[in-house]
Nucleic acid binder design. Structure first.
Length: 491
RNA sequence: CGGGGUGUAGCGUAGCCCGGUAUCGCGCCUGCUUUGGGAGCAGGAGGUCGUCAGUUCGAAUCUGGCCACCCCGACCA
């Protein structure tokens, strides 16, 4: 194993793959396209999950759990939905194995064929709406605000750890409402929740918008999304929130009696974020030395590394380090004192840089004598010597500073790579040369969108929610347009 | 699923063209010396050469099938 990562500049995707491996986040399993999330990677995901879960509960949602398997017939009830997912479903056809008669091993027992095949959920709208049908009779039963944390399976052609795996972890919210307006408010509210989480915790700036018709979720009337820019200037869809209209209510015949006793179809939303956010987190902040984690999600905030020669020195340094550990813990700072004698300090320095621990302290005899400690921040790699006294409050402040700095850095990078262009020729040339996001006028048609995609591989990422009204003409067809959309190459 | 590439110890590799029982580095184990940016020396363990079949006296090496992974397309959160 070489000591250094490939740099982002020389091979971005190799950099990403090796970083995921070397930072001990995840690895490939023996099953094609599936990943093993390792303890350190899972700890980051758990931190994300905890924050999101609390936010869902604050906004009135409850968790529940629906089955992994969906009867095949359910999936075909909503026409767009089946079109969108049919090509990537794993199907369970049998329920038993047996030993082959020729002794060649274990085989699927042909006698154990299921009457109706089961689909491994690619998303749970259908099985959930099949239940909602039984739960909803009256306007008094509404709204239903449910979230579930689950794994789903989508049989993708090409996979990459965290960004696109065959099986992935996510949360999916599924809500039912009495009115269209209320459902739209819900979908927008959850987009806000995602935005707050991603910006405040992941330190990742996003553009909020809605999808063009062809990029919309299969079965949705409107798909809201947050789009982030990675360090290679490609776009990554970080989360979506869908206004489903009455599509699923009609497909599953879910009606409620309103106050006048009139039967109406229920209005729906669904919204989700996945372990893909891990990929986004990695690609937003990390550098050629390894992972860089925003303090709010880092499993370890501060690592303390002892430096010593003799047992006496180790004892003295340890005593001081343990005092610090207690002080950090009292301030709610997640701290690790790495007193492993099998690794030398230099090795540890490199290791914790690879793992993205925001702050590192080194204490040796020299520091003890002077009442100091060496402090290094991961984001800027700035090294300083500070007094031991009160170092815990200094670190507390520094963690907030790092969190803010990461967001600012990412934001500055994004701003530097968003361009306004007005002609198709200029768009193609700049996209090819410098990548980035492009704010352009588009005539709103599928045909133009398709043409751009075919010719440049860039797609309409979103129609920004805060886009100002601006008269212009479509850069491709010259037809009128009243606002700019974001176009970019995407993951 | 189409095009290209790769599979040799836990990881990274040499050997393959030209067939003769596998090289080196990292890691691992033991011991001593070390410890302020990935330690040094000495000794040691670890391999059905992705897999199945074929050719051959003999296959990591030649031929074919299959599998997996990586890159580029199509698909997608």
């Amino acid at each position: 194993m070489s000591k250094n990562l490939p740099t982002r500049k020389e091979d971005y995707s190799k950099w990403y793959n090796e970083l995921v491996d070397r930072a001990d986040l995840a690895e490939h399993s023996d099953v094609r396209g599936c990943m093993i999330i390792k303890p350190y990677g899972f700890a980051i995901w758990e931190n994300m999950k905890d924050v999101l879960d609390a936010k869902f509960k604050e906004t009135g949602h409850s968790n529940a759990y629906f089955p992994l398997f969906i009867p095949k017939s359910f999936l075909s009830k909503e026409a767009n939905h089946v079109d969108g997912f049919a090509k990537e479903c794993a199907v369970v056809t049998h329920y038993r194995l047996k030993n082959a008669e020729d002794g060649s091993g274990i085989i699927v027992d042909p006698d154990a064929k299921l009457e109706e095949e089961l689909i491994v959920r690619p998303t749970s709208e259908t099985i959930i709406w099949n239940s909602y049908k039984n739960w909803i009779q009256s306007y008094r039963d509404l709204p239903i605000l449910i979230n579930q944390w689950a794994n789903v399976v989508r049989w993708e052609m090409r996979t990459r750890l965290f960004l696109r795996t065959t099986e992935f972890l996510w949360q999916e919210g599924h809500t039912a409402h009495a009115t269209k307006a209320e459902a739209i408010v819900e979908a927008e509210k959850m987009l806000d929740v995602y935005t707050e989480f991603v910006e405040d915790y992941m330190a990742m700036p996003v553009i909020r918008g809605y999808k063009s018709e062809s990029e919309r979720f299969a079965g949705a009337e409107e798909t809201y999304c947050i789009e982030a820019m990675m360090q290679d200037t490609k776009a990554l869809q970080a989360g979506t929130s869908h206004f489903l209209g009455q599509n699923f209510a009609k497909a599953f015949d879910v009606k409620f009696a309103d106050k006048e006793g009139k039967l109406e179809h229920v209005w729906a939303t669904s919204w989700g974020v996945s372990t893909r956010l891990m990929g986004a987190l990695i690609m937003t902040h990390s550098d050629d030395e390894g992972l860089v984690l925003p303090p709010k999600l880092a499993p370890i905030h501060v690592v303390i590394i002892p430096i010593y020669k003799s047992d006496e020195e180790f004892a003295a340094v340890s005593a001081k380090a343990n005092e610090l550990v207690a002080k950090f813990k009292a301030l709610g700072i997640r701290v690790k004192f790495d007193d492993d004698d099998n690794r030398r300090p230099g090795w540890k320095f490199a290791e914790y840089e690879m793992k993205g621990v925001p702050v590192r302290l080194a204490i040796g005899p020299r520091d003890l004598a002077e009442g100091n400690v060496e402090l290094v921040r991961r984001d800027t790699k700035e090294k300083s010597v500070v007094t031991l006294e009160g170092v815990e409050t200094r670190v507390r402040t520094l963690l907030d500073e790092i969190q803010a700095n990461l967001l600012k850095k990412a934001k500055d990078f994004r701003e530097a790579n968003i361009h306004k262009v007005d002609t198709y020729a200029a768009f193609k040339e700049r996209l090819e040369k410098e990548g980035g996001f492009y704010l352009v006028h588009w005539d709103g048609t599928k045909e133009t969108e398709e043409k751009i995609k075919e010719e440049t591989k860039a797609t309409i990422r979103c129609i920004p929610l805060d886009a100002p009204h601006e008269e212009g003409v479509c850069m491709v067809t010259g037809k009128p347009s009243s606002r700019r959309v974001i176009i970019a190459k995407a993951y």
